[in-house]
Design a protein around this nucleic acid. Structure first.
Lengths: 337, 337
DNA sequence: CTGAAAGCGCTAACAT
DNA sequence: ATGTTAGCGCTTTCAG
C-alpha cells in the first residue's frame, strides 16, 4: 500500500494522462472523453487520491471557509443557527470557522481582524452589538448579518422583533392585563432596542400606561432573569404581566419567583422570546414568540454563498416569519389588586 | 490606497529586503537584525500586509485546522465543550471546523471521510457512538476522544461516568430510598453504558434490589425524559427515586410530572447528570453530577495540539474530576408506601 | 479533447 | 544576518 498520500501527479501517471486532465475529470467531468474519464476515476480509486484542498484553494484564490462571529458559543440559542448554517455550508464544501466575540477584549476589533485577514471567503455576523463602522474596509469579503442591524445597508436575515413584542403586549392586553412590564436585553444591542421599541409602541397603541420603572434591564441570560425576579419581588406596586426579551431570562425569572412561592400564571403572567427547546418542558410551559433559528441559519448561509459566488458585496435581505406560541405561562390577571 | 491585498513580495520591495527576511521577521523575529526588523515591520504596516494562510499552510504541509465531530451541534451540551476547544485552538492559530454526524446518513462513514480527506491536522471526537474500527486508516491524523471510549487505545479526555452514577445512588440510599430507578441514554452509547454499569454496581454494593423494569431507556433528550415521565406515572409500583443519565432528560421528566401534579422532591426524588446551566434555575433546582465541560474541551485541545506538534499518533489520556452537586430535587422518600 | 506550462503566496534549505 | 531558489499541489489559460 502507499505509504504517503497520493498527489494529482500520481493519478496522472497511473492513468497515463496529464495532471490537467485529472483535474478536469474531477471538477468538470463533462469536458473529458468518457474513456479518459473512466481511466482517471480508476486511477483515483487505485491510489486513494483526495484533492489537496489547501493547494486547490491557493490556486483558486479562495479559502473555502466562512467565519461565523457570535457573542458566545456556549449559548444554546446560537447552536441552532449554527446547525442551519452548517447544513448549507458543508454540502457546498465550505468549512465553518467559529469565532467567539466575547473571548477577546474588543469584539469590533475582532471583526476588523477577520475582515482583513483574508482567512475567509465570507462572514456571518450573529452579534447584534457589533458596530457597523467596523465594516469600512475596502476589499473586504461579503458579510451577512443574521440579526437585526442598525444603520448600514447590509444583507441580513432577520425577524420582526418589534412585531414580536407587540404580539406579547396584545396577548396580555386581551387577557385583561393593564399593568405590563418588560425585561430587556443589554442596552445598545439591536435586538434589545427593537423589542423595546415594539413594546413601547404597542403599549401606546393599546392605550396602556407605560411605566418606566416596570422596564427592567437584563442581558439575555438566565442569571439576569433571576436578578429581575428579585427586583420584581421587592416592588410595592408590581406589574401583573411581564414580557421578556429572551426565553433564557424568562426561565431564570420563573424559577426564582416559583421558589419564592409565586404561582405563574395565577399571580403573574409571563411571555418570553425565542422558543428555545426547553421552554415547552417547563411547568408551566412558557408562552413565547418562536424564532425559526435553523431557518435563519439556512437563509443567511444561502445569501452569503450567493454573494461569494457572484462576487458581489451587497445582496437582498430576508425577513423570516415569527410565530406567537400560546402555552400556559400567561393567563388573566389576579382579581385582587 | 492599495486596491488589492499586499503579498510578501510587496513588503519585501517596500522594505528593501528579500521575501525570506520578511517571512523570518514575522515568524522568528529573533533571528533578524533589529534594524531590519523595524524596516520590515514598518513596511508591513504601510502595506497592510497579512500572511496568506492558505499559501503558508500549503508550503508547511499542514491545514491549520482541526475538525470536531459531534452528534448534534444544536445540543447545548456540546456548545460548552466547543467553547473550551476554541479557547485553546484559536490562540494557537488553528481553525475549528465543525461536522455534525447526525446530518448525514452514516456517522462512521463521515469519520472515515475526515480521517482520509487531509482537510485537518487533527480530529476531536465528541460522539460516543462512533465505532473505533473507523480509525483503521494508515497515515491518519491524530485523534482525541473527548468522551469515554471503548476498545481502542486512543488518547481521550473523559470523566468517571460510573462513579457519577454511584454518587447518585449513594445519595439516594443515604436519604433512605430503597426503590431506585434509572433513565438511561441510548443503548450502545459509551456514556449510557458506563453510567448504567455504575448504577448497577452501586445498587448491588449498597445492597438494594435491582429492578429491571425500573430501568427506562431514553436518548438524552428532553422529549425522552417527558416520555419516561409518562411511563413512570403509569406504573403501579413506582420507584421513589430516579437517576437520569442526562440533565436534559431530567428536565423533560420534571416538567411532565409537575404538570401531572406530582411534587418533587416530596413524592419523588430525581438526580441528573451534567449540570447544564439551566438546572440551577429550575424549581426545584436540580441535584446533579457536574461535568466540567469547558475543562474537557480545553484538555482535549491541548492533548491534540501536542500530538500534532510532536507528530505522534498516540498520547496520554486524561480524566477530569466530576462533582456531586446537591440541590433540591432529591429528598427523603415519602413515608406512606 | 488533451497536454504543457505558468504560477497562486509562502517558507525552508542552502548559500553567501 | 540575509538573499536565492526550489518547490508545496493544484488549476487554468493557451496551444495543439
Amino acid at each position: 500500500m502507499d505509504r504517503k498520500i497520493a498527489t494529482i501527479q500520481d493519478v496522472a501517471k497511473a492513468a497515463g494522462v496529464s495532471t490537467a486532465t485529472v483535474s478536469r475529470t474531477l471538477s468538470k467531468p463533462s469536458v473529458v472523453a468518457a474513456a479518459t474519464r473512466e481511466a482517471v476515476l480508476n486511477a483515483v480509486a487505485e491510489t486513494g487520491y483526495r484533492v489537496n484542498t489547501t493547494a486547490s484553494n491557493l490556486r483558486r484564490q479562495r479559502t473555502g471557509s466562512v467565519i461565523v462571529l457570535l457573542p458566545n458559543i456556549a449559548n444554546p440559542f446560537f447552536s441552532q443557527i449554527l446547525a442551519g448554517l452548517a447544513s448549507v455550508l458543508t454540502p457546498a464544501q465550505y468549512g465553518m470557522l467559529i469565532a467567539d466575540t466575547q473571548s477577546g477584549p474588543d469584539p469590533d476589533q475582532l471583526l476588523a481582524h477577520y475582515l482583513t485577514s483574508g482567512q475567509a471567503d465570507g462572514l456571518v455576523l450573529l452579534d447584534g452589538s457589533l458596530s457597523p463602522d467596523a465594516l469600512e474596509h475596502p476589499g473586504r469579503p461579503p458579510v451577512v448579518m443574521a440579526c437585526e442591524w442598525m444603520g448600514r445597508d447590509l444583507p441580513s436575515v432577520r425577524v420582526e422583533n418589534g412585531r414580536g413584542a407587540a404580539m406579547a403586549v396584545g396577548h396580555f392586553a386581551q387577557l385583561g392585563h393593564r399593568a405590563i412590564g418588560h425585561v430587556t436585553g443589554p442596552r445598545g444591542n439591536v435586538l434589545t432596542e427593537e423589542r423595546l421599541r415594539g413594546f413601547r409602541e404597542a403599549m401606546v397603541s393599546v392605550g396602556l400606561p407605560l411605566r418606566e420603572d416596570w422596564i427592567l434591564e437584563g442581558d439575555f441570560s438566565m442569571d439576569s432573569g433571576a436578578a429581575a425576579a428579585r427586583v420584581w419581588l421587592a416592588m410595592k406596586d408590581r406589574p401583573t404581566a411581564l414580557f421578556f426579551s429572551s426565553d433564557e431570562m424568562a426561565v431564570g425569572f420563573l424559577g426564582a419567583v416559583q421558589r419564592a412561592g409565586i404561582h405563574v400564571p395565577r399571580e403573574l403572567s409571563i411571555v418570553g422570546f425565542d422558543n428555545i427547546e426547553i421552554v415547552q418542558h417547563l411547568s408551566p410551559a412558557l408562552t413565547t414568540i418562536r424564532q425559526p433559528r435553523t431557518q435563519i441559519g439556512i437563509r443567511a448561509a444561502e445569501l452569503l454563498l450567493d454573494m461569494i459566488e457572484t462576487g458581489t458585496r451587497t445582496g437582498p435581505s430576508d425577513v423570516i416569519e415569527i410565530e406567537f406560541i400560546r402555552r400556559d405561562s400567561a393567563g388573566p390577571p389576579p382579581v385582587s389588586r
